[in-house]
Design a binder for these strands. Structure first.
Ligand SMILES: [Mn+2]
Ligand SMILES: [Mn+2]
Ligand SMILES: [Zn+2]
Ligand SMILES: [Zn+2]
Lengths: 138, 138
DNA sequence: TAACTAGTTTATAATCATTCTAAACTACTT
DNA sequence: AAGTAGTTTAGAATGATTATAAACTAGTTA
């Protein structure tokens, strides 16, 4: 067992899931990366089918990803169109979003600062603030 | 013909649509307001069925709203879930979003300021920046 | 080992928002 | 009146997501 496989197994157990080969394959795609990974369920399915020759079912992909989201290992992002993206960067952070390519890119927290913060409606409090910078070809 | 009806007709004509009674009914719901209106297509359908007793077809609602969006009389907003919202405030602006009630509230431009703006990826330029402040019950 | 149990995978069906289609309808022009 | 272009509508199609239920797997107990 590789070192990272042990980490995957821990993530799965923490998420209330048994470490099966399908789920570990999903972990390999999602978490064996240096940089933030933004993906749709469809992206995930295609990568798995390309890398390994086996297929996993759509239901397993959805269930596993949602379990990770619930546990906080993934974040769901809804921007600019009708499908959900998931994000391996689970901290509150800002994005560049290219409407043409539908690509999301993380922005380093230090690179942005919100100066004035508005007063929320009565009886409400602000729990998060995220900026989307729409970008396009120069 | 009322004064605002003349404005609706102009908006429709500008959007390349003939002013029919169904479309004018849609305009009455959308544009006869002081404050910004955020709505889903389903909201629009329900309001029309409640106010007038007649029904208009889903297709007409979608088509008309999309024509207004294309012309710039409405803005489409995708936040936090699987359905589209439309916004009668077509300027670039920030929102409060209550995840429990699914409600959007506009933020006055003067109440927010972004201090540091990040450098976009190579060959790309920033065309818009919008902040979503997630809020919840205090 | 055999039986038992809880959890898992999968194909497929169901759901729901959105878009498409084609037929009936309307308004405007000749 | 006939012709035409545009419109409305019900219902079908699409596509992402969720639910279902039967077959499969792994871990536990006898
Ligand atoms: Mn989801
Ligand atoms: Mn749309
Ligand atoms: Zn991100
Ligand atoms: Zn708004």
């Amino acid at each position: 067992m590789t070192n990272s496989e042990a980490i995957y197994i821990e993530k799965l157990r923490n998420s209330g899931l048994r470490p099966t080969k399908q789920r570990i394959r999903i972990c390999e795609v999602l978490f064996n990366r240096e940089k933030t990974f933004h993906f749709s369920i469809n992206d995930l399915m295609k990568i798995i089918q390309t890398k390994t020759n086996e297929k996993i079912s759509l239901a397993t992909a959805y269930n596993t990803v949602h379990a990770f989201k619930k546990k906080g290992y993934l974040k769901e992002i809804n921007i600019g169109n009708e499908i959900s993206y998931f994000d391996t960067n689970t901290q509150s952070h800002h994005h560049f979003y290219d409407n043409q390519t539908k690509e999301l890119v993380d922005i380093n927290s230090g690179d942005v600062e919100i100066k004035k913060i508005p007063t929320p409606p009565n009886g409400k409090k602000i729990i998060d603030a995220e900026i989307t910078f729409k970008i396009s070809k120069e």
